[in-house]
């Protein structure tokens, strides 16, 4: 059970972040969650959007280097120790987390954490075995 994430290569130049969001905004695409990883030279913007395939096409046509990748969206109870519980499952399963970022659901009861791991399908199975619920892409995009 995975979701689609878009990653965009950005040089560290003023205004680039605005340009990406502006292109998406004009196309009526809503950003659900985002995270930015950066080095001194460049950054990688990671996005969960409501219409990933359309967003991919639009960004590409606008000249951005963009890539679609599969991530896990995990519901974590919004209380102390909630995230640690999930990470413990990964640790015990010997799975490395490449990166992760979180956002809070509108209803406010749960946090949603996006995980990118070395082995997405094994990670997903492992979470299911431990009764951790994951959110399917289609549902995530509409949240």
């Amino acid at each position: 059970m995975t979701a689609k994430q878009l990653s965009i290569f950005l040089e560290n130049r003023s205004g680039r972040l605005h340009e990406v969001t502006d292109v998406l905004g004009r196309a009526g695409i809503n950003i659900r969650a985002l995270s930015l990883a950066d080095t001194s030279d460049f950054g990688i913007l990671r996005l969960i959007v409501d219409k990933p395939d359309e967003a991919y096409r639009i960004l590409r046509n606008s000249g951005f280097t963009v890539r679609e990748s599969d991530v896990l969206a995990v519901e974590v109870s919004d209380q102390p120790g909630g995230l640690a519980k999930v990470l413990e499952i990964f640790r015990n399963g010997g799975i490395n987390v490449e990166y992760m970022y979180a956002f809070v659901e509108k209803s406010g009861k749960n946090a949603i954490v996006i995980f990118r791991t070395e082995d997405i399908s094994r990670s997903s199975n492992l979470l299911s075995e431990h009764g951790v619920s994951q959110i399917e892409g289609e549902k995530l995009y509409k949240m």
């Binding site: 990653s7 290569f9 950066d38 080095t39 460049f42 990688i44 990671r46 280097t65 490449e98 990166y99």
Partner: peptide
């Protein structure tokens, strides 16, 4: 370009 792009900082 897309062929060279990875979404992981480490890979880039």
């Amino acid at each position: 370009e897309e062929r060279l792009f990875s979404d992981e900082v480490r890979a880039l």
